[in-house]
């Protein structure tokens, strides 16, 4: 996890929130797309990055560590000018209503979340996405949340009629894990928005 953070000048690097969660998988995805990645541990790390990824992990843990490191308000400020991508726990944090007092929302996506919508790990699954921009993508749903989509959210992908990837402005949130597997389309789409 400590290895391979190339030092980068300029503003092309993408930050990955590195408090807890599957940081290496997003770093691998960015490396595959030729984009330098940098870990974000504290507010100062948000300077000089072109966008920020909130990875999958435990949303209760991440929420506390965001607050403990003064990163919650710093990320809200950052998001006024730069794009965010949130996957699974990252999506929950980006929402306007996490549906759970244990997880404080950053309010970057106008959506209401149901944590662990499908159940426990026994109910985790991989499915092929149906409609939208990522049709055919093999998506891993791991103790995944559900979200309610309404304007101004644009639905980018659905599974069994439920929205599972959404966009609001330049922010994208996924209930599944596009960082797992080989399909780079979600990251490419988001990087193009940036």
């Amino acid at each position: 996890m400590r290895s391979a953070w190339p030092s980068v000048a300029g503003n092309s690097a993408i930050g990955i929130l590195a408090l807890q969660g599957n940081v290496p998988a997003h770093a691998r995805m960015l490396a595959r797309l030729g984009r330098p990645a940098r870990p974000v541990h504290r507010p100062a790390d948000l300077e000089d990055i072109a966008g920020l990824i909130l990875p999958g992990g435990e949303s209760t843990t991440l929420s506390q560590l965001l607050q403990g490191n003064d990163l919650d308000q710093a990320i809200i400020d950052f998001a006024r000018h730069r794009p965010l991508l949130g996957t699974c726990a990252g999506l929950i944090l980006m929402s306007s209503d996490t549906g759970d007092a244990r997880v404080a929302p950053l309010g970057l996506l106008e959506t209401q979340i149901t944590r662990n919508h499908y159940g426990r790990q026994r109910e985790s699954f991989i499915a092929t996405l149906e409609g939208g921009s990522f049709a055919g993508l093999r998506a891993a749903f791991i103790r995944a949340p559900a979200l309610r989509a309404r304007a101004p959210l644009e639905v980018l992908a659905t599974h069994r009629g439920l929205p599972v990837a959404v966009r609001q402005g330049r922010h994208v949130g996924c209930a599944f894990h596009p960082e797992l597997g080989q399909d780079t389309r979600v990251h490419e789409y988001w990087l193009d928005l940036a």
């Binding site: 996890m1 969660g21 999958g56 991989i126 891993a140």
Partner: peptide
């Protein structure tokens, strides 16, 4: 295989914790 990806995937989500 898919089932192992899901198992390893949950382990990966615990990283740093």
């Amino acid at each position: 295989a898919d089932d192992f990806q899901l198992k390893r995937g949950l382990a990966e989500m615990l990283r740093g914790g």
